[in-house]
Write a protein that binds this DNA or RNA. Structure first.
Lengths: 200, 200
DNA sequence: CTAGCTTTGTGAAGTATTTCACAAGCGCCC
DNA sequence: GGGCGCTTGTGAAATACTTCACAAAGCTAG
């Protein structure tokens, strides 16, 4: 989140940003900002603040964003199609290199710029590439099977949109986005007057 | 998350579940399960575990899911269209009652079952309904404007898919899903061998 | 070069969350 | 009905996270 705002400040031409300023942007406290950043190093200048451009570069390095990441989308249903054409990924430097499905009615069909390929090909395609993140957008029932398969194909990071809790070996990173669960969280907040100021 | 697994156990006919069992399903610890549930009441029976069916009902009540929630999707772009037709919402009992956009080329166009209506109508439509959650699926630039507008229209809960940090008054609940940020989290995990076992 | 204003980096203090560990309750069997 | 095995609910201990507060710098101006 810091990176996002720093990039904004950078393009707007601002040279330095204080922890106060970053805190306000990120809805947190100056002390929090300083502790967070100090975990990775000592980037600021006392009396001045943090050098926006340099800190941006440092954070990109820390996050591993210097490397070019590629994405394969698994599942060419509604969500998969939307993600395949979602500009946000490209804008943040993630390149969608393929969309896969195992339904014959979808294979070969082209969606936007991407052509849907057979799941069976995913293995080979992924082994050829390095630095691939898989985005799972398939029905819950198949989720674990497909995940096991792409893990076997050598994928080390998965972003899961299937509303199912999938399990991966400890050397694989997994993040899940469960939209219905988010809605249920909002339902709870409303019902109990919590006014959940949810994370980014 | 407990609710999700309890429903599964319930349909599979299991009558009781111990904290050990729930912990394993949810990738947490038995003590955590017991503390979490005890916050809301004393649902279990010592020596036996938790009554699956009853606890399911309790959790649904706690989460406010007895009420029927309605959803309006704001933005008929790729993400909006996908969400409008996403079955997961319906499956979890959320009813999509409208899709809105302000681009004339999209208004009137029907997407799946929903017809895209003019944003200008949203005010009136929402005031007529109670228990509406807005799902924001528009470009970042407009996000804050649109959010201000629907808040003014009386919406009290927002699920934001725009990759922008929006601000809402304290009596409004907001959750944001930022897909690019999730990917960057995975990038960090991979680059630093963290093997992030991300939340649901 | 010093005084004064600003802002970082960081131990220490203060909160919050998680885990431990065990008494108390429940069901079952004899 | 009493003993036994199991599992909850919960204070207390342990751990994690956030905030405080202040010394150590840097910048500016005179």
């Amino acid at each position: 989140m810091y990176l996002r705002y720093l990039e904004e400040l950078d393009t707007s031409g601002q040279n330095t940003a204080s922890s106060d300023e970053l805190a306000e942007l990120c809805h947190t406290t100056p002390a929090q900002v300083r502790k967070d950043l100090s975990f990775f190093g000592s980037f600021g200048k006392r009396g001045l603040g943090y050098p926006v451009h340099e800190l941006t570069a440092h954070l990109r390095e820390i996050l591993g964003l210097e490397r070019e990441w590629k994405i394969v989308i698994v599942g060419a249903g509604k969500i998969g199609a939307a993600l395949a054409n979602y500009d946000g990924f490209r804008q943040r430097g993630f390149q969608v290199i393929g969309v896969y499905d195992n339904s014959p009615s979808k294979i070969g069909h082209s969606w936007g710029e991407a052509v849907v390929r057979d799941m069976a090909q995913l293995d080979a395609d992924v082994r050829a590439e390095d630095s691939v993140i898989a985005v799972i957008a398939i029905p819950s029932d198949d989720a674990q099977n497909v995940v096991d398969r792409i893990v076997a194909a050598g994928i080390r990071a998965i972003l899961n949109f299937a509303p199912a809790q999938v399990t991966v070996p400890p050397n694989v990173s997994l993040k899940s986005v469960n939209m219905a669960m988010e809605l249920e969280g909002l339902s709870f907040a409303l019902t109990n007057n919590f006014s959940d100021r949810g994370a980014a």
